[in-house]
Structure formats: C-alpha cells, structure tokens
Design a binder for these strands. Structure first.
Lengths: 231, 231
DNA sequence: GGAAGGATGTCATCTCGCTGACATTCTAGT
DNA sequence: ACTAGAATGTCAGCGAGATGACATCCTTCC
C-alpha cells in the first residue's frame, strides 16, 4: 500500500480529480465548478494494493471511500464453500461511501485480485466535501442512484432464472472489451453456485461457439447469441 | 386516484412534509430548515389508489416520486409464471426517484394491492427541490444509500442459500408487527420460486411451531427460531 | 345467500444443480 | 527449468425444486 503519484505538480492531482468527477455521476445534469474540483483534488490520496492484498475487512467501519483507478477488487462475504462474491470493482468503481453515509460497518471484505491502484478519500475528507460542496453531493447522489438501479437489475437477473440465463447475463454484464478476466471459481461465487455446475454451462456455451474458455479468462465471440440466451 | 387531504390548512401539508422528511434519510446527520420543509410541503400532492389499481407501468419514464403514506404497492416485472416481485413498498417507502435522477425508464410495474395513499412529487418539483435545496438533496442521498445497502443485503440473502434460508430471511425482513400480510403466491414471486415449493417449506415451519399460516397472511410466532434458520 | 375468483394443500414425476472426488493443465515464482 | 499452487475438465449419485394437476377452502361482491 504505497503512493504511486509523483507529487511533481498540482496539475496531476487536478487531472485525477477530474477523472474521479467523470466516474461519479453525470456531468450533464450537474457540472462541477473549478473550485469543487480543486477541493476534491486536495483530498484525494493515491493508494496501491498488491495482488491478493486486503483493502478492507468485513464488519469494520469504513475509513473512507475507495475509487478504483486501475486493477480489480473483489467484494466477498462468507468463507470457503459458502463464499459469495457480492460484486467486482473495476476501473471507475466507487466503494465505501454507502456505509460511510449510513454509519454502518462494511458487510463484505475487499481484496485486490491483481495489482490495483486506488484513489482514497478519508472519511473526514468525504464528509467535508459533502458538507461544503453541495454540487459534489448532488453529483454523488446520481452515482449512488446508479448503484441502486444496478442492484435491482442484478436481483431481476437472478430470480427465477436458469443457470444458463444467469451465466450469460453475468458474462455480458461483467465483460470488458469482450473479455472476462476472472476464474470460473469467482464467477460461480458471483452467482452463488458451485463451480462444476457453472463449468458445465460454460463448456456448453463454448461448444456452441459463443465463447472461448481460457485459463482464468473467457473470450466472448458472439455477444448477440449470448443476449438471446439471457432473455 | 383522488385527493384525500382536505386542504383546510397549510398546517396539514406541513405535517405531511415533516413526515416525508422522517422517511427520507437521517434527521441526525442533516437536519432540515423550516424553509426546506415549507418548500417540500408546497410540492407534495396527495394521491389515492384503489386495491388493484396500477401506479405506473414498466418502460415508462417516471412522472415523479411516490412516497407511500399507507397501504401496500407491489413492484413486479415479467408476466404469468415468470412474474417476479422486485420489491414491496410499505408505509414510508419511496420510489421513482432513482429513475428520475438517472433519466431512465422504470424497469418494473407498480400496482396497489390494497387501498393505498401516496404523497406525490411531480418530476419538475423534485428537480427544483434538489436544485434549490442542497440540504434536502444531501438528505435524499442517505435515503438512496440505504436502498443500495438493502439491495446488497438482498443479494447476499439470495445467493447460494437453500429455500428454507431464503424464506425465513424473507419473512423476517418483510414482517410488520410479527405479521406478513401477503399471499404465498406473492412471497414465492419475491424469491423467484414456484408456489408449491414455498408452500412445502412454510408448512414445515408451521409444523415446527415457528409460524402460523392463514389466508393471505402469516403470523410469526418465534422470531428467534426463524433467525436461527436464516443463518 | 350464492357464485366466482383467489388462495391454500398436496402429490407424482422429472430435471437441474449440488456434492465430493479425481485427473489434467496452466502459471507464477524460485 | 522445475515445482507448488491454482484453475480447469469431468463424472456418478443424490436431493432440492420445478411442473402440472387437482381438490378444497376462504372472501368478496353481487
């Protein structure tokens, strides 16, 4: 967990802040002022996590907000066979703010599954930002709203669906550039299903030419074909 | 869909506004000013829905925000056997704001399953409120955050769990005063399972003395016993 | 009071996904 | 290059839910 931003210039911090602003909420509805950006920039703190390193543990109070700059973080609850992957964080994902706002402990653990760079907003910084910069708070609202919508989408994609439907939906939702760079074990945990069950489905999809399976990676060959299976 | 508030006094509107304020977000962290409340009061519009009446339809753009004053609303997607109940709205629930904020169509239909009174915030009113009253927007943020947390909780309660675990968790979560006033058909749709499957589980719970089944109602006799089964 | 529409209770059959186990293949790190 | 650890591929047996069907019971509304 070390600093990766050379503090050579204010400039670089501002660029990071502008990037965060693009990740949080919609620029259209609520543009941020120059002053909002500099405030955000002054609070942001770069962090780096090695592959496998824990970002935070379940049941702790969050110490701030994490924004993923690059890499991947796994949010998981439960142990061993009953482990569930609540969500994966990719570049641009934000986490920790919900629990901070609600004053509740984190309901899951987070660990980097590859080298991951984050921007970190300490809890006092986040609270100050929300208190003193209403437009930032307003903008944050749309970011959180998007997460509610995504959660509902997730529930609808899970309930009453066969494993084939669930799996294809998952591949389409978590694909980045036609690729899913996760082991089948993790994908199974995202659906709350056993690995052999998922493997059988994936093998079948591969036989139909829709995807190609690799070691810790899946290539999507026919997104439209998958879409048809996902309903 | 008619007005139920006699417009005898500003007073009554203010009371409604204060009530809404209690429903949305945490009074501790962000107290509202007198002026915020009067603005909210001036925008609120009472509506009444008869049992069975549609509140809105899926794929439409929301016309505003609904806040349930009394009664019950079912949010559902899909038809016939594949119908899924995304969520139930009870007294104090808020809906429509997420989609309004994101400018997206409603992903589910809503219908009153008993006579239901709502307070309605037309979209222009909601947007004006968010724009001109930062403390209200800040407060709304915590309300939306709570819904993210609830959604995550829901996903964790569904993934990789047996039907017994899912059902007991559902009963505990949707109980009001030790009662669940919903037909088994609806409860099954909330879990995405078939009614006979759920009935078998419920009958078993009844045999163990944990609950009592009625016509369109379930009484919880032993909440602690259920909690133990839900993990 | 009676009829219609819901809701519950139950069952036999079938399917899908779980379970545990084991072999094989790939990758990272020494 | 080699080794340990991790990931994939596969299988037989088992069990939980799905399915479709039907009888009965409760409410609501004429």
């Amino acid at each position: 967990m070390t600093s990766f931003l050379p503090r050579r210039r204010e400039d670089s911090r501002l660029r990071e802040a502008a990037w965060v602003a693009r990740c949080v909420g919609d620029p259209q509805t609520t543009p941020l002022t120059e002053e909002d950006l500099t405030a955000l920039a002054s609070y942001l703190q770069p962090l780096e996590f090695e592959r496998g390193a824990p970002v935070f543990r379940a049941d702790e109070q969050p110490t701030g907000v994490w924004i993923v700059r690059s890499g991947m973080i796994e949010l998981a609850a439960g142990r061993g066979r009953r482990k569930i992957v609540v969500q994966m964080l990719y570049t641009g994902s934000v986490d920790g703010d919900i629990e901070l706002i609600l004053g509740m402990p984190l309901p899951y653990s987070a660990r980097a599954i590859e080298t991951t760079r984050c921007l970190f907003l300490a809890s006092e910084s986040f609270e100050a930002l929300m208190r003193e910069h209403p437009t930032v708070a307003r903008r944050w609202l749309s970011s959180v709203a998007a997460r509610v919508a995504r959660g509902q989408q997730r529930v609808m994609g899970l309930l009453g669906r066969s494993l084939v439907e669930q799996a294809t939906r998952l591949l389409l939702d978590d694909q980045i550039d036609e690729r899913v760079l996760l082991p089948q074990r993790t994908l199974a945990a995202m659906l709350g299903v056993q690995r052999p069950s998922l493997n059988k489905v994936l093998k079948d999809l591969e036989k139909r030419g829709l995807i190609t399976l690799g070691y810790g990676r899946i290539e999507i060959n026919d997104a439209k074909g998958l879409e048809a299976l996902a309903r």
